[in-house]
Design a protein around this nucleic acid. Structure first.
Length: 272
DNA sequence: ATGGTAGCGCTGCTA
């Protein structure tokens, strides 16, 4: 079986600050599709021409200082959708979702709100955003078709996904309403691809910059690739690239990548 | 011990 698609996702915590690291990473990780979050950039400043030089068609949805999401694809992209259906992408207050079709796979890059503190208006807005994400997927996608929803969900799916559950008592990212919101996406027909390969705890994608969090392995798994069942079944390899969290000026998130092998029907066609 | 660090951009907000 041949790998036909390498999908990656990375919250870069400012694309301008991370561009050098990102170019280095593209050269050695060689993703076919890369979803970015927290570009903290406007569409005008987005270096689409630079990405084209590197072999990727790139589309971006951002309005400046906060948030900002993008999709890069070697194959090119079609059917690009910025923002949720019914929103004017040029006037939305927060740019947290962009979708495109790449090599026949629908790709959605998401950056869920942080929520700040349980019970705050920001927490309620986070839950509403997650519900809207569910409705967007349910109304525009088909669980029988290849779809990958990739990004920073700002939710640790269960207690294996935080370094010490006791430390998170009463905190965002681990509450039942947040986990239920994620569960609704899975119930619709999505699979947490990393969990389809690994059961162990302590696989993290984010570590606080403060207090030596990375070196103490005080982290969380909040960056996810959710794929429809048939697509997830074609995943052969999942990796959180912790090396990208080391060295000069790292993001506080590590990139994650998923390799997809060719579809069974393509194989049978070949053998016929 | 409501700390600590990074990014943006210039004051304090966001994470």
């Amino acid at each position: 079986m041949t790998v036909v698609l390498r999908i990656a996702t990375w919250n870069v915590n400012s694309l301008a600050a991370r561009m050098e690291r990102l170019e280095e990473w593209l050269r050695y990780a060689e993703p076919d599709v890369l979803c970015l979050q927290e570009t903290k950039m406007s569409d005008q400043a987005f270096p689409a021409a630079r990405f084209a030089d590197l072999g990727y068609q790139a589309v971006h949805h951002g309005n400046g200082r906060w948030n900002g999401v993008a999709i890069l694809a070697r194959s090119g992209v079609t059917d690009v959708a910025r923002a949720f259906s019914g929103e004017n992408p040029d006037t939305v207050a927060e740019c947290r979702i962009i979708a495109a079709t790449c090599q026949g796979v629908r790709i959605i890059s998401v950056y869920a709100p942080n929520g700040r503190s349980v019970g705050s208006e920001h927490y309620e807005a986070k839950l509403q955003w997650l519900a809207r994400l569910h409705d967007e997927i349910a109304s525009t996608c088909d669980p029988r078709q290849p779809l990958a929803v990739c990004g920073d969900f700002n939710i640790a799916p269960d207690d294996r996904d935080v370094w010490d559950p006791l430390q998170f008592t009463g905190s965002t990212h681990v509450t039942e309403p947040e986990r239920r919101a994620l569960g609704r996406l899975l119930d619709w027909g999505l699979v947490d691809v990393l969990r389809s390969h690994y059961d162990t705890g302590g696989i993290f994608t984010w570590w606080d910059y403060r207090g030596g969090g990375f070196h103490r392995h005080h982290g969380m798994r909040i960056d996810l690739v959710l794929a429809t069942r048939a697509l997830a079944a074609r995943s052969t390899f999942v990796l959180v690239d912790r090396n990208a969290r080391k060295g000069p000026r790292p993001s506080d998130h590590a990139p994650m990548l998923v390799d997809i092998e060719e579809a069974p029907d393509a194989v049978s066609t070949e053998l016929r």
